[in-house]
């Protein structure tokens, strides 16, 4: 039987480690989720689930800044699962709390949401969007993108190159379309 005092000390160490990880990664993870998740209830669930997994798998988490990449990977999978299955059902039964949704809408006010750029971006595949997002939003390089996606740096480079090309092409065609239809005024939202 284990000495209970050793157990307690280990528990303390574990908590201290988690605390440190949490302090270092909460903000980037919150940012990651917010940028990909339009609903406040869902975003809150995803952040909570991501760190719940981190707590359970603390021993698997790599040290240093790689921990952040590891957690992006977790958040990515939690998000992907969130749209299916249980979370979906939960979402249906608890419709959004208006004030929370408004808070998100306020913090996330995005004047270009309805623009041709946003449309072109939305039309990309999930994978392409994720690659472009990891680089532009999370500021990752090839190696870091590879760590999040679980592929080689070389593969990340090639996939990113292709995603950028597809996005550029979509932008060009969106631009020529909007020029044909007259100047496009991005609609401002969030402003009452």
């Amino acid at each position: 039987m284990r000495d209970p005092t050793i157990g307690a000390a280990m528990g303390d160490r574990r908590e201290a480690r988690f605390e440190a990880l949490y302090a270092a990664t909460y903000e980037p993870i919150l940012g990651y989720v917010l940028r990909r998740c339009p609903s406040p209830d869902d975003a809150a669930d995803v952040v909570a689930e991501t760190f719940t997994i981190a707590w359970r798998r603390l021993d698997d988490i790599p040290p240093g800044d790689t921990a952040r990449l590891w957690l992006y990977g977790v958040a990515r999978r939690v998000l992907a699962n969130h749209w299916r299955g249980e979370a979906q059902r939960r979402r249906r039964t608890t419709s959004l709390r208006h004030d929370l949704r408004d808070e998100i809408a306020a913090v996330a006010a995005d004047p270009v949401e309805a623009s041709a750029i946003a449309e072109a971006f939305r039309d990309l595949s999930d994978d392409d969007r994720e690659l472009l997002g990891l680089v532009a939003w999370e500021g990752l390089d090839h190696a870091a993108v590879a760590a999040v996606l679980g592929c080689s740096a070389g593969a990340a480079r090639v996939r990113l190159h292709r995603a950028r090309k597809r996005f550029s092409r979509a932008l060009r065609s969106a631009r020529s379309e909007s020029m044909a239809m007259g100047p496009h005024v991005p609609s401002a939202n969030g402003a009452p």
Binding site: L30, G31, P38, V107, L132, A136, W137, S168
Partner: peptide, 22 residues
Amino acid sequence: HSTDDLVRSMARVHDENLAGFA
């Protein structure tokens, strides 16, 4: 890449805005 800034401009929120939230 030239499109990086465009993508960045579409971010709903930037990490800088979340400083101190932890």
